[in-house]
Structures are given as structure tokens and as C-alpha cells.
Amino acid sequence: MKIEILGSGCKKCTNLAADVEQVAKGLALDFELEKVTDMTTILDYGVMSTPAIVINGVVMSAGNVPSHAEIELLLNQANNTQ
């Protein structure tokens, strides 16, 4: 699956990217992770509060850094609908 972390590159966004990567590895998912800082892309997703998690083109969370358990839930959810 394709995971994108949207954000301007602030500390929260870097933290979130690291968290998501760790959880996804823990779940042994097949994934690629990309950090998106380009504002046009962020705007196209309709996201206003960063950091946000986008999985396979769908905005899963925005404006906060979810806990590991919540990230796991999001990843499983996206994995099942694939």
C-alpha cells in the first residue's frame, strides 16, 4: 500500500512519519512511505490541518498525531479494503 504523510516538515510531521513506519513494519505490511511537503498536493487532498495520513489516496487522519494503537487501526482498515 502507498502511505503518504502530508505536512510542511515541522517536528510533528517527522514524528508521525517515524511512528507510521514503525507500526507498519510491526504489522509486516507491504508498503512504501512518502513524506509530502508540496502544498499543491496537500491542497488537492483538501487537507488543512497537518500532519495528515493518506493511504492509497484516501485521507485517513488530519491535524493530529494519532497514538500507535490508532495508527495500527487505520493501517489494518486500509489493508482490508485493498
Binding site: S8, C13, M39, G46, M48, T50
Partner: peptide
Amino acid sequence: CSCSSIPVFLG
């Protein structure tokens, strides 16, 4: 967060 100023402005 003030780091969201730009996306908020655009949104």
C-alpha cells in the same frame, strides 16, 4: 498548529 498556516490559508 502555526505550521498549518499555509494549508489553512489555501483551504
